[in-house]
Design a protein around this nucleic acid. Sequence first.
DNA 1: TTCTCATATTCAGATATATAGATATGAGAA
DNA 2: TTCTCATATCTATATATCTGAATATGAGAA
Lengths: 125, 125
Amino acid sequence: MPFRKIVSKELSDLLKSLAHKHRLQIVEELGVRELDVNALQSILDINHSNVSQHLSVLRAHRIVVERREGRYVFYRLRHPELATWLLEALKFLADDQSELDGIREAIDSARQAWSLSSEISDKQV
Amino acid sequence: MPFRKIVSKELSDLLKSLAHKHRLQIVEELGVRELDVNALQSILDINHSNVSQHLSVLRAHRIVVERREGRYVFYRLRHPELATWLLEALKFLADDQSELDGIREAIDSARQAWSLSSEISDKQV
DNA sequence: TTCTCATATTCAGATATATAGATATGAGAA
DNA sequence: TTCTCATATCTATATATCTGAATATGAGAA
């Protein structure tokens, strides 16, 4: 059954492109609203070219879509549900990890913040 | 809002541990039924120690749980829904990728095969 | 018990891949 | 042209991965 191997490969490529804290943050922020590179840089607080590199990865995997407006480039998720889908993974973290004291609270806060924002942005759209 | 950073980190660690074609295959197979290392090796068709190493990664992130029976070590998913959740990501691949000719069919086949097997194993459990 | 085989994990090394930062290039506006 | 925003390229460093050997761990036989 070679399709299992094909699919595992495709899926792992997708996950690889998401498996970086800054790229994940980009995806979550873009799940809330469209943003340009500058805005993303302020949010992530990292090197400008580094932001571009991460966006390039996400672009290559067609996770984000760009829209040029003058000299600004705005990004959004090709599939906005991706952000929601990713947050669902938090349930695979959020339990019986006594050693991770504050993590659970952080997770709850983040889940709330990001999904709340999502609802707001849905209204805006 | 530091919790966003914390969560991005935690989540990216989880994704990293899943973002490998063989580990993904392990997770999908374990989503269907409990298996020992030998069985996984035959399925993956890779080096024995390599299987152990991948399992070690999954164990470290508490994705799998082990159960020893004599000289055999059986593995299962700590959260069986993880396999289902991963398959949902296929929808982020399966569209308008004309350049990926056969991929879509493979995805459909794999989705069917794995979820069918899941149902069967559910009955067995 | 000791010996041997089978199962599984761990280690050490070589290779490959990913990442960050600096710099260079491109693209658009004034 | 110059200025700004964004991307691409290059280098170094760091991480991940694979192979093969060494090391457990347990079962069964002598």
